[in-house]
């Protein structure tokens, strides 16, 4: 994967979208590649819609602007679909990965998405595996399934370092999401 992959993560303040983008960036950097992650800049408000950005490339990354035309968008909270235009600027061959109980084809017809749609019930998985409905690490599994942008082991290592004693639940959630994510081209 030589070319630049640009990912926009949509979440709510406090729900870990920024952390997810960071952990994937760290994983890519540890694999010896180039990556960049940063939050949507500004004062943080818990519960408000937020975005986080992630770039991964095999080459040095120079660009220092927000991501306006992502290759992939990840949506941590399905309610955001009615609040935010998550597909803004999404490339023609882009991909949308959504935390939702609904199947990808249901989401496609409901919202008229013309891109590849993937979905997984991350809230349910996070509740069962971690005990809280915080879906960022779960959605990392869905992201990995759709993009294969980094190695599963690299993400596991990041989760262990970041969450220490609480890592196991997050790892389980990520792995479950990896196997349960469905997609519709």
């Amino acid at each position: 994967m030589g070319k630049l992959l640009e990912v926009r993560w949509h979440g709510r303040g406090g729900a870990g979208a920024v952390t997810a983008a960071e952990l994937v960036a760290h994983a890519a950097i540890e694999e010896g590649r180039h990556a960049q992650s940063f939050p949507s800049f500004g004062p943080e408000r818990r519960g408000a819609p937020v975005v986080a950005f992630l770039r991964i490339s095999d080459e040095f990354i120079r660009i220092r602007t927000n991501i306006y035309e992502p290759d992939v968008v990840v949506v941590l909270d399905p309610a955001l679909l009615r609040v935010v235009d998550v597909t803004s600027g999404l490339k023609e061959k882009g991909k949308i990965i959504i935390n939702s109980r609904k199947l990808p084809n249901e989401l496609k017809s409901e919202y008229g998405f013309k891109w590849l749609v993937a979905s997984v019930n991350a809230t349910k998985i996070a509740r069962e595996a971690i005990g809280v409905p915080i879906t960022n690490t779960t959605m990392m599994g869905a992201f990995l399934k759709v993009t294969e942008a980094v190695k599963m082991d690299s993400l596991i290592k990041q989760l262990k370092e970041r969450f220490e004693a609480r890592a196991e639940g997050n790892i389980e959630a990520m792995k479950r999401a990896y196997s349960e994510t469905l997609r519709e081209d």
């Binding site: 960036a25 180039h34 990556a35 992650s37 940063f38 800049f41 220092r64």
Partner: peptide, 11 residues
């Protein structure tokens, strides 16, 4: 530069 550099993670 605030945020656009200060908050960026990179190698």
């Amino acid at each position: 530069d605030g945020f656009s550099l200060s908050h960026v993670i990179e190698p």
